[in-house]
């Protein structure tokens, strides 16, 4: 009984946040002399209006699902990790190194190794922040934020020197992985396999967090550290594990960016998927399945950004404004939980 009521509460509050966002954004658009409904129509067309648009939306959403898990999983243990961007970058670097080292290996083996390398590197990266938090009390939000800058600096160093491919003249980039190691598109679509990886990771995370004692224990830790300690839960191990899993997800996003999109590491890896992932995790209220849905929504906003520019002359920042408004509206709306009496009566 309580469960459908809480679903109804979530749905109502989310819808209210969405409507508030659209109203505010409509105001901005109207200030520029455009008709908000026209813009919303184009927003929909650009995101879901054609197969071409849907392909683009889903492609954009794949890395977001994974980087969102980087924030969502540790958040269940009560940690605020914002290091998805850095984990993605080191994951991408590790992928390139694995791919180049295993150049003579059979392709399926190499692809698995590249994925493992990406996940391990990303996991270790955020896991280190988890360890610092547990052993030294270093604030994980600050440390993961700073680790982003370190990751990007390390990448810039490597691709402009030690692993630079001088045959790529247009910009500094690393060696490329073999053409046979590229993971292509899902047959019959223009969407690469990264989407399947993202959905699988979200499902796995959901199963782990909702249907295992580990997930239950993590929720206790996230809810009340003292209670968890009193219950004798292995807090350190749980913090490290959730951080590692989150980092591994973002590292896999790096693998996908390298193996499905670029073929090499360069500054093109750090284009903000990690930061948008934080937004996705918060919009999904750290729920692993909701993360996948929200990632598609955000992917749609990114995918339609071009159409808004081309049809209405809106600046590129328009979709950023929309995303920002959405974020603020959802955060503000989250204070409404537990206040709607209709969801409480006769519970």
């Amino acid at each position: 009984m309580a469960s459908w009521k809480s679903w109804a509460e979530t749905a109502t509050i989310s819808a209210a946040a969405l409507l508030a966002t659209l109203a505010l954004f409509g105001g901005f658009v109207a200030l520029r002399g455009l008709r908000p409904l026209d813009v919303y129509a184009a927003l929909f067309t650009g995101a879901f209006g054609s197969w071409f648009a849907i392909e683009e939306t889903l492609t954009q959403s794949a890395p977001l699902m994974l980087t969102a898990l980087c924030t969502a999983l540790p958040a269940r243990a009560g940690l605020l990790v914002i290091g998805g961007e850095g984990a993605l970058v080191v994951g991408g670097l590790a992928t390139v190194l694995a791919g180049v080292l295993l150049v003579d290996a059979p392709a399926p083996l190499a692809v698995i190794a590249m994925g493992a390398a990406g996940a391990l590197a990303g996991g270790a990266w955020i896991g280190a922040a988890g360890a610092l938090r547990h052993r030294r009390g270093v604030n994980e939000t600050i440390s993961t934020l700073l680790l982003n800058y370190i990751a990007i600096a390390v990448m810039n160093h490597l691709v402009t020197g030690p692993i630079r491919d001088y045959a790529q003249v247009l910009k500094p980039a690393s060696w490329s992985i073999a053409e046979g190691f590229r993971i292509g598109d899902i047959p019959g679509t223009g969407i690469h396999w990264g989407l399947a990886v993202g959905v699988a990771a979200a499902l796995l995370a959901y199963g782990l967090m909702r249907h295992t004692t580990f997930g239950f224990a993590v929720d206790i830790l996230g809810g009340n550290v003292r209670a968890a300690r009193m219950a004798g839960l292995p807090i350190g191990r749980m913090i490290l594990t959730t951080c590692f899993m989150g980092g591994a997800a973002a590292g896999l996003a790096g693998t996908i960016e390298v193996a499905a999109v670029h073929g090499f590491a360069s500054s093109s890896l750090a284009v903000g998927y990690g930061y948008t992932g934080i937004l996705a995790a918060f919009l999904a209220r750290q729920h692993p399945l909701a993360v996948a849905v929200v990632a598609i929504l955000l992917g749609g906003i990114s995918a339609s950004g071009g159409l808004l520019q081309r049809r209405f002359g809106l600046p590129d920042a328009a979709t950023l404004v929309l995303r920002g408004l959405l974020f603020v509206a959802v955060l503000a709306a989250s204070t409404l939980y537990g206040r709607g009496r209709v969801f409480r009566r006769a519970a």
Partner: peptide, 17 residues
Amino acid sequence: PETIEVEKVMEGMIRQD
């Protein structure tokens, strides 16, 4: 950006506009 992104943008211009 000078990535695969520009291919999507060009395709969008061709196919959507």
